[in-house]
Design a protein around this nucleic acid. Structure first.
Lengths: 228, 228
DNA sequence: CGCTCAGTTGAAAGGTTTCAAAAACCGTGG
DNA sequence: CCACGGTTTTTGAAACCTTTCAACTGAGCG
């Protein structure tokens, strides 16, 4: 039973989060060390360069992981969705900052407790290994994008990714979960360049927009082609 | 005992590779499925988009992991050194190509056999998890570099990395393990840009070169500053 | 209804790439 | 040991794309 009075049994991501791999006893033990935490948009869970004190499962919302240079340039290096794990077990320091992109709720554990749960449960460890390998695959795809794709290709790629995640049917409208600034931060571009590329896609009839967030893909094939 | 007649006991990376976590029996079982393989510079172990058939430990040499776009643009997304693990357990398809940068020797296992060894040995699984988390950290640092650093910063960053790995004392000479082309492939630049940045660092007295590979860092502080 | 902030658009600047050619390097063979 | 030929590296100039700086527009909200 967590601080907020919700039990694991009624957790929105029960069955999808890492702790799905725990048996009843281990779950109870871990659960006793965890607590729910809500973050408003823009609030951070941890900061790069600071001690990596916590691990958490994202229950609802959306978070960004950002890396930054000494002089303040920033880059989003990952996005976390509900049921995703965030944190860095087995390391003293975090090298990313984790910030809520939308109002979010997490189940937070002291890092040491979470590590003990991992070590004590090979299934959960295996699950984390698989997820980490997938995250690494995604990171490598992003490296290719950041290093070799044009601005137009990057924007198209992101729109396809958002549409896929929004499970938007072809031509149907969905809301972008990111501002232009966040899109830029993710794609390694500037706000202006993102805006110009969206304008270009709209001019070519490939997408339609409605306000800043409303988005509809009119020509998925063309968008895929544009994504390189 | 592997094909080449060498046993694990006399393996050059025994104690550092993943299999250091295996007990005697498990090691014997895995070892029976593995074989040594030598690759000349430029030869590949696996190809992106093809079936991820093998896992391996790099015994000696150096390999690059490259991702590529449909139209052939390429980006190095990782480098493997002796004792490093290469391969993608738990996935049907590989999304990177693994190619030898120097004459290399690997201990290669069918993916299924390696996965069984992992599943049967929590210690090895834990070790792979830790290494994968470290690799992910490195990948994120690279994303930041590829997205936000200038050509000069990238080249300086790479030189520092190479010097560190070569354990070159301050001012001492060492050989770059990469050609200009490979440096460019790693840094998300072109050969010409890498060459121009090296020329600039040389002109500023920060480095000295001797042929294409010989490199000496004359002013480490300035180089660190230049790396951003 | 006006205010504020996010997003768009424009023009100029800047850095990197592209294309082209010269120079240096390296392994080979005489 | 030096000359040779192919390849890698360096250098130059122009083109290109993205960024920067600046101003405008539009949307959301009290």
């Amino acid at each position: 039973m967590s601080e907020t009075g919700k039990s694991c049994a009624e957790c929105a991501v029960r069955g999808e989060a890492l702790c799905a791999a725990l048996d009843e006893n281990a779950l109870a033990a871990l659960s006793a060390t965890g607590r729910r935490r809500r973050l408003a948009r823009g609030e951070s869970l941890s900061w790069a360069g600071h001690e990596s004190a916590v691990c958490a499962n994202l229950i609802q919302g959306m978070m960004k992981l950002t890396a930054s240079t000494a002089d303040g340039r920033e880059q989003i290096v990952g996005i976390a969705y509900p049921a995703d794990f965030v944190g860095r077990p087995f390391a003293r320091d975090a090298d990313v900052t984790v910030t809520a992109l939308a109002p979010s709720e997490l189940c937070v554990f002291p890092r040491g407790d979470f590590e003990r749960a991992l070590t004590g449960c090979a299934d959960m460890e295996r699950l984390l290994l698989r997820r980490t390998l997938e995250t690494l695959d995604a990171a490598r795809e992003r490296m290719l994008m950041l290093a070799r794709k044009t601005a137009g290709e990057r924007v198209a790629w992101l729109l396809l990714d958002c549409a896929r995640r929004a499970e938007a049917a072809d031509g149907s409208e969905f809301d972008l979960p990111l501002t232009r600034g966040e899109m830029a931060e993710l794609l390694g571009l500037t706000i202006e360049t993102v805006s110009r590329q969206l304008t270009r896609l709209r001019a070519r009839g490939i997408i339609a927009t409605r306000g800043a967030r409303g988005m509809a893909i009119r020509d998925a094939a063309a968008l895929e082609a544009a994504a390189g």
